[in-house]
């Protein structure tokens, strides 16, 4: 009995001494490196999300979902930010580690503003290909959030000649057509876009006094996803985005050192407790 007790004490002190040397265990932890590009064109103002506590605007909803993703990706993951408008993707931030730079990332995400758009037209295919080039340059996977609403409607997409990419094409918005709010430069609601508001030289459109409606153009987005190798899903909840972003096959492995001291400390604790109580 005494031998057992002394043995336990020696084991305890052994664990404590071991813990003093700060042992670590190298684990391959899944981390992610994403470039997140948000569509900031006018149609992203349309309001078709109805979730409690979350904004209803497509752009604001997408931003809220991305914020959730920043908060929920494992430490060591990196996120870059970009915006898409017209034919181009503009990079805002190169990928940054999500835990250490979460405040900066969130501020930058909140600062994304539709007013940074420099043209009202949008050609999603060009923007997507641009984003894919940027993501390839940054060795990141792409997350492209758009409602697929393209204006003016183009009969066909340009060909894709890049390498098939990994990542997500995220459809933002709902299936039901909703009107697009027209905002002034301060963000106040002026009314809704009418078909007649569109510039006159685009004669292909019927000229009727009718609201311009926007819905998630899933067919087009699926098509784009198919040719670029991305996967498509419709954004329903922030959790769903987080879940998809954390999919293991998109993970890169980062050797992380797991601190063994808590475990050694706990083992020492229980050994000492046993030595005291038996």
């Amino acid at each position: 009995m005494k031998k057992l007790r002394l043995g336990l004490w020696v084991v305890t002190l052994g664990f404590v001494t071991a813990a003093l040397f700060h042992p670590t265990w190298v684990l391959l932890q899944p981390v992610y490196r994403y470039l997140m590009v948000v569509d900031i064109t006018q149609s992203m103002h349309a309001r078709d999300y109805h979730l409690l506590g979350l904004p209803s605007e497509r752009l604001a909803f997408a931003k809220a979902a991305l914020e959730q993703a920043i908060l929920n990706l494992p430490c060591g993951s990196q996120i870059g930010l970009g915006i898409f408008t017209h034919k181009d993707t503009e990079l805002l931030l190169e990928p940054l580690e999500v835990c250490q730079h979460a405040p900066s990332l969130r501020t930058a995400l909140r600062n994304i503003d539709w007013r940074s758009a420099w043209a009202a037209d949008s050609f999603i295919a060009y923007g997507l290909f641009d984003a894919l080039r940027a993501a390839e340059g940054l060795q990141a996977d792409l997350v492209f959030l758009t409602d697929g609403d393209q204006f003016p409607k183009t009969p066909s997409d340009p060909g894709f000649f890049g390498r098939p990419a990994r990542g997500w094409l995220v459809g933002v918005g709902g299936m039901r057509p909703v009107p697009i709010p027209k905002l002034d430069f301060e963000g106040r609601l002026l009314g809704y876009w009418q078909i007649t508001d569109l510039s006159r030289d685009r004669d292909l459109l019927p000229r009727r006094a009718e609201l311009l409606l926007s819905r998630l153009d899933e067919t087009h987005l699926r098509q784009l996803a198919n040719i670029t190798g991305l996967e498509y899903f419709q954004l329903m909840t922030p959790q769903q985005l987080v879940q998809n972003l954390r999919r293991p096959d998109l993970a890169k492995t980062l050797p992380t050192e797991v601190d063994l001291r808590p475990w050694l400390g706990a083992l020492a604790f229980f050994a000492a407790l046993a030595a005291m109580l038996i």
Partner: peptide, 20 residues
Amino acid sequence: STAPRQVLPLTADKEAIIAA
């Protein structure tokens, strides 16, 4: 360029500034 965009407000996070 044609339109401005504020990427980051005043911050001490140098790495984020460098990334921007």
